[in-house]
């Protein structure tokens, strides 16, 4: 796993676990059998993959909209000399679910996710107030794919 070089078993574990586990007492049993290894090995490798940052976390993925909340993709053009400050501000803002630096005039792209629809406008207003920068809000109108799995 040095330098991000995963062995085939690591890759198979990530590929399978990104699609989800069955909600049963022994959620790794089937995967372990497929890989001809033990559940303990799967869990030990998962722990290593998490420690190495290859896997962010292993947890229930929640859908804010199904809970009556909302999500919204937003972008900002942040001056270079303020970029790290704004990134740090977003780091501790719970409404910011994801944040990416991108190569573009709009160089900061983030997803707001809130448990109540009304929280979205509040969050945008707060960000604009605290940063003095304009937020470009791009809520989704339609979604054509939400398959977060990549061929590994």
């Amino acid at each position: 796993m040095r330098n991000g070089h995963l062995d085939p078993i690591d890759r198979a574990i990530v590929a399978s676990l990104q699609r989800g586990v069955p909600l049963v007492e022994r959620p790794f049993a089937e995967l372990a059998a497929t890989l001809e290894t033990t559940e303990a090995t799967v869990v030990a490798r998962l722990a290593r993959l998490i420690a190495a940052g290859v896997v962010g976390r292993f947890a229930p993925m929640l859908d804010a909209e199904k809970l009556g909340g909302a999500t919204c993709l937003c972008a900002m053009a942040v001056p270079c000399d303020r970029f790290e400050d704004v990134a740090r501000f977003f780091e501790q803002l719970p409404e910011v679910a994801h944040n990416y630096e991108r190569e573009h005039w709009f160089n900061m792209w983030f997803v707001l996710a809130v448990e109540r629809r009304e929280g979205l406008l509040d969050a945008i207003a707060r960000i604009e107030r605290e940063t003095g920068l304009e937020v470009l809000a791009l809520p989704k109108l339609e979604e054509y794919r939400l398959e977060l799995t990549l061929p590994l």
Partner: peptide
């Protein structure tokens, strides 16, 4: 919760860069 869609799935979140 999964049937209601509140939990999409119980899964690992991969870091694309590190993969």
């Amino acid at each position: 919760l999964q049937e209601r869609g509140i939990v999409r799935r119980v899964a690992a979140v991969p870091n694309h860069f590190r993969l």
